[in-house]
């Protein structure tokens, strides 16, 4: 799905916990998330912390959309 979007020339960031799968399948811009059942907010942490994490990682993803990359890139979080 990511590839079809990119094939159309639209930049796409995949936010994924299984970074290796995202890499293998051929996503070019990847931002890691924290888990499969709660990628962007751990329910065992305070709401404020979940919000900070989510806001931060989405920010990295947005930055990733603006970043000119030469090769498949997993952005640091």
């Amino acid at each position: 799905m990511v590839k079809e979007v990119e094939r159309a020339g639209i930049p796409i960031v995949q936010m994924a916990n299984l970074v290796l799968v995202a890499k293998n399948i051929g996503a070019n811009r990847i931002v890691p998330t924290i888990s499969i059942p709660h990628p962007l907010g751990d329910p065992n942490t305070p709401k404020e912390e979940q919000w900070k994490l989510r806001y931060h990682r989405v920010g990295i993803a947005l930055q990733g959309l603006m970043t000119d990359i030469e090769q498949q890139t997993v952005f640091d979080v």
């Binding site: 799905m1 979007v5 639209i10 930049p11 995949q14 995202a22 990628p39 962007l40």
Partner: peptide, 25 residues
């Protein structure tokens, strides 16, 4: 997955979308 991706892309293009964030679990 490829087919659904292509169907979604057609929709994205007609909506004039510039960039996409995809989340996966």
């Amino acid at each position: 997955a490829g087919r659904m991706g292509r169907e979604i892309v057609a929709d994205l293009l007609s909506a004039g979308i510039d960039a996409v964030i995809m989340t996966s679990t």
